[in-house]
Measured scan of single mutants.
Amino acid sequence: GTVKVQGITIKVPNPDKAYKIAKKLAKKYNLTVTRKGNTIKVE
Results as ranks from 00 to 15, higher is better:
Asn14His: 11
Ala22Thr: 04
Leu31His: 01
Val3Arg: 03
Asn38Ala: 05
Arg35Pro: 02
Asp16Gln: 08
Lys20Gln: 12
Thr32Asp: 03
Glu43Leu: 09
Ile10Met: 06
Ile8Arg: 02
Asn14Pro: 15
Val42Ser: 02
Lys4Trp: 14
Ala18Cys: 14
Asn38Pro: 03
Gly1Lys: 04
Gly1Trp: 14
Asp16Pro: 05
Leu31Val: 10
Lys28Ser: 07
Thr9His: 05
Val33Pro: 00
Lys4Val: 14
Thr34Trp: 13
Gly37Pro: 03
Ile8Met: 09
Asn30Cys: 13
Lys24Val: 10
Val33Asn: 00
Asp16Trp: 09
Asn14Ile: 06
Ala18Thr: 02
Lys11Trp: 15
Thr32Phe: 11
Leu25Gln: 00
Val33Ala: 02
Ile10Phe: 13
Ile21Lys: 02
Val5Pro: 04
Lys4Gln: 12
Leu25Trp: 12
Thr32Lys: 12
Gly37Glu: 03
Lys24Phe: 14
Val5Asp: 02
Asn30Thr: 02
Leu31Gly: 01
Asn14Asp: 12
Asn14Gln: 02
Thr2Pro: 05
Arg35Trp: 12
Asn30Arg: 07
Arg35Lys: 08
Val42Trp: 02
Asn30Asp: 05
Lys11Leu: 13
Lys23Cys: 15
Gly1Tyr: 07
Thr39Asn: 09
Val5Arg: 03
Lys36Thr: 13
Lys20Pro: 00
Lys28Met: 12
Lys41Trp: 15
Ala26Ile: 08
Thr39Gly: 03
Lys4Cys: 15
Lys4Arg: 07
Val3Asp: 05
Lys24Glu: 10
Lys24Thr: 07
Lys11Phe: 15
Gly7Tyr: 11
Lys24Asp: 08
Thr2Ser: 08
Lys23Thr: 11
Val42Arg: 00
Gly37Val: 01
Lys20Cys: 14
Tyr19Gln: 01
Lys36Asp: 13
Gln6Ile: 12
Thr9Cys: 13
Val42Gln: 04
Lys27Arg: 08
Pro15Leu: 15
Thr2Ala: 03
Gly7Ile: 13
Val33Arg: 00
Lys11Pro: 09
Leu31Asp: 01
Tyr19Phe: 06
Asp16Gly: 09
Leu31Ile: 07
Lys23His: 07
Ala26Cys: 08
Ile8Leu: 10
Pro13Arg: 12
Lys4Thr: 14
